[in-house]
Design a protein around this nucleic acid. Structure first.
Lengths: 332, 332
DNA sequence: ATGAAAGCGCTAACAA
DNA sequence: TTGTTAGCGCTTTCAT
């Protein structure tokens, strides 16, 4: 069923049908209702390809995540999907992994589908901050469509980012541990991304201010991997750990169990993301919540505004900063 | 950059460029390499809308999940995405929730984007099994594109489903508990879907065979909700629980902690899905693994076969049955 | 092996 | 208010 057949049945031209479909006000009530009647009867839906070919949009947003099975990413996608649906946008999903090449490749792929905007979820897309060229592909993408980066700062025209105050969050978390009397506080992370660096900076600042010694370990973001890694080293002597994710934090708790140590008495543990995992362990995990839901919803709101501005000069904020919150539970 | 400009630069007609892009063998080596050269230089990518308009496909698969932030669904999506990418397919994602109306609506939406196939993830799409009409919208969708249901059996033309042997899995799990001496084994679930019913059937069969008394509770799929629900009732007397999900199982463990009961000595617990949550708790959770990864990969393989058959009569299995596996850990 | 041209279904500019 | 028509960029059939 296409627009020609509908036009025929309604006894009007295709232009009129198109007008009705697009809610033009230059159609008489009579005609409109007749056309709507036919549309309804035959169940006509416009062909999105034909629409897209002319308008060069399909009301679809491309979303890139490094790993959709990560509980943090998948919640973000859920929030985005929910917000986008309210504005009638669909979601084309890419899973890019953490490698530069795949990120670029997936970006090209989404762009080739003519998405209306691109949303990158995760600080991995902001690169390590060492080399500007790491994020060049994002700037290139931004030449075609507005780009949004969730939880990562990328500079450039047509790029809008939201970052959470990871540095302050970890700084505060470390302070809390110090105040509780911990003196050998270690920092465990799985990533060398932009946000991982900010976290570390906050960590080091707090530790050094207190005249303590910062120790950082690099581990996999998997519960058992972390536990096993720690068990293999017998030169460990920390009395607290701040982790770059909840899974890592729980890995530390597993290590404690094996060693017969108590959390938080012998080892205090603080995780990151405040995911469902934080509620699963015992004691439950103190975790830094970076307000993903709010960031996602704000991002969609900004996106709509950018669309409305239509590429014109606008005063929409390029960089949004969102505070984190330390959710204290039994592990600290 | 479009095909006309490429043709111009290469000094050939658009037909030839099109042939080169599509790997036709009716192009001389000379011409081919000249065209490829130009394509590469100018970075030409064919417009997918124009392609789609003619061919009515965009090499995109629609995936529907009830809740992408659920760890089980998001892993499934990750596996699907990964397998699909190998065949050059992208993924249009819909989050439908559990309500009939939204499911139908999202289905229509994905179909309107002319996806090449539809994949439903989760037994919720198989309905409760009480009323055939609940799944009519799936059969209607299948008139347009091949439909695949992961973890749910739906009958109909052009519909391919994979179900795991939930009944046998729960039956065996219950047997294991009985053998360990448990006599008050309860079943907790959050769902009334097809697979929930199969699980219950397996549970009841094992319990009744042993001359015991089946008790089923209906709860939310949230750790703390389950714990609080149980805490509010003081007429509970179970010595084992089989749960419809890992989150529910962990909720039970939380209840045990509050009550000062030991797992598995006082209460043995078995979860479902073998997700990351099962590793986060202490003791770690015995859980039924329904081999999502394998199901997802098989589904994609079957999809490709269906495409190759091109709607012709084929002997591709309509219903795939996959066994589950009880992964025993400390909680049972 | 290559080119010309029709057609895919829609939107929007222009005419009436 | 309504209709006519020219694109949008590609694939494919039919000539050559």
């Amino acid at each position: 069923m296409n627009i020609y057949q509908v036009a025929e049945l309604a006894g009007v031209s295709i232009a009129t049908v198109s007008r009705v479909m697009n809610g033009s006000d230059k159609v008489s009530e009579k005609t409109r209702s007749r056309v709507l009647q036919v549309i309804d009867e035959v169940g006509f839906t416009p062909n999105v390809f034909a629409q897209g070919l002319g308008l060069n949009t399909m009301h679809t947003i491309g979303i890139l995540v490094p790993n959709i099975s990560d509980i943090y990413m998948s919640s973000a996608v859920a929030y985005l999907q929910d917000s986008l649906a309210k504005y009638g946008y669909d979601l084309l999903l890419g899973n890019s992994g953490f490698e530069q090449e795949k990120k670029e490749q997936q970006t090209a792929l989404l762009l080739s589908k003519h998405v209306d905007a691109l949303i990158y979820v995760g600080s991995t897309y902001a690169g390590s901050g060492k080399d500007e060229r790491e994020t060049d592909y994002i700037r290139r993408a931004a030449e075609q469509v507005p780009v949004f980066v969730i939880n990562g700062g990328v500079d450039g025209d047509n790029i809008y980012s939201s970052v959470c105050e990871d540095e302050a969050a970890v700084y505060n978390a470390a302070k809390v541990l110090i105040k509780k009397g911990c003196s050998k506080i270690w920092f465990l992370t799985d990533s060398r991304s932009y946000s991982a660096i900010k976290k570390r900076t906050g960590y080091e600042r707090a530790i050094e201010e207190a005249g303590l010694n910062p120790v950082q370990l690099h581990v996999d973001n998997r519960i058992h991997k972390v536990r096993d890694y720690l068990l293999q080293h017998d030169d460990l002597n920390f009395d607290a750990v701040i982790a770059g994710s909840d899974a890592i934090a729980i890995g530390v708790m597993k290590y404690a169990v094996q060693k017969g140590l108590c959390v938080p008495e012998d080892i205090a543990v603080i995780g990151y993301n405040n995911s469902e995992l934080a509620l699963a362990c015992e004691p439950e995990l103190t975790s830094i919540d970076n307000h993903t839901e709010q960031i996602c919803r704000d991002t969609v709101e900004r996106m709509i505004k950018v669309f409305e501005a239509g590429g014109a000069e606008n005063n929409i904020k390029r960089k949004l900063t969102v505070p984190c919150e330390l959710v204290e539970r039994g592990s600290s």
